[in-house]
């Protein structure tokens, strides 16, 4: 046994008392994840629709929106959403600030997923719907979007595994998400730093796996033969499972 703390088993024993807290904090990350995905979904869909069907001016606005939220680091966004509203008389918690900051950013990526999906629905579908006497709006909602929704599921799997890791960036917003909780643990006992951080890393690996499995289920549940993203199956078999890139 080394002077620096001894065998791994000893670390696990010493980590034990903190595990409930860490898991409770993980739930906060999951809540944040759900919240930000929802915000991103609503605004992402809206932006995608504006880009595809909105005409020139709206399309430009949507593109600028996307560009801004893709180009500013998440941490800066979180601080902007944390310090911004109070300047206009609205108080926000760290959680809300992080949820909207990461949510709006996610919307800039989700819009691209959805836009790509809409555009990969063959144009003949629209023509066929119009030829039956449907209005353009009705055709979009009953024919195009349901297909686009299915085509966009692989993109969302990727989005999910990307943003789940970036929920730790909410660390900067100062509420007790899992990484800040870990930090509090090892600030009181520095010899536990490695153990607790590796534990947090493992939590995320498990969450990513579970999330991928869940999205795989969704994908199969909504699968329609013949309506698939070309090459998706092959790409998935070759890669090591979805580990969406975080965005910084």
């Amino acid at each position: 046994m080394s002077s620096r703390g001894g065998a791994p088993i000893q670390y696990i024993v010493r980590l034990g008392p903190y595990i409930p807290n860490l898991l409770r904090a993980t739930v906060i990350n999951i809540e944040l994840l759900i919240g930000l995905i929802a915000v991103g979904y609503v605004f992402g869909t809206l932006v995608a629709l504006l880009q595809v069907y909105g005409g020139r001016a709206l399309c430009t606005v949507a593109r600028i929106y996307e560009w801004i939220f893709r180009s500013i680091p998440a941490l800066v966004l979180i601080f902007l959403f944390y310090f911004g509203p109070p300047r206009f008389g609205v108080n926000v918690t760290g959680f809300t600030a992080a949820m909207f900051a990461l949510g709006f950013r996610s919307s800039a990526y989700q819009s691209q997923i959805f836009r790509g999906a809409i555009q990969s629905v063959p144009t003949g579908q629209m023509m066929a719907a119009r030829s039956m006497g449907m209005s353009r709006i009705r055709a979009i909602f009953t024919i195009i979007l349901p297909q686009a929704f299915r085509l966009s599921i692989p993109g969302w799997t990727n989005e999910f595994s990307s943003v789940i890791k970036d929920t730790t960036l909410a660390y900067a917003a100062g509420f007790n998400e899992v990484l800040r909780t870990a930090r509090i643990v090892y600030d009181t006992d520095m010899t536990l730093a490695m153990a607790v951080l590796v534990f947090v890393a493992l939590i995320f690996m498990v969450l990513t796996l579970l999330g991928n499995a869940a999205m795989g289920f969704v994908e199969r549940r909504f699968r329609i033969p013949g309506l698939e993203v070309p090459g998706h199956e092959k790409a998935r078999q070759m890669s090591l499972g979805s580990s969406g890139r975080g965005r910084g």
Partner: peptide, 8 residues
């Protein structure tokens, strides 16, 4: 790829 960069 499976763990957050900030944790790393």
């Amino acid at each position: 790829r499976g763990t957050p960069l900030l944790v790393q």
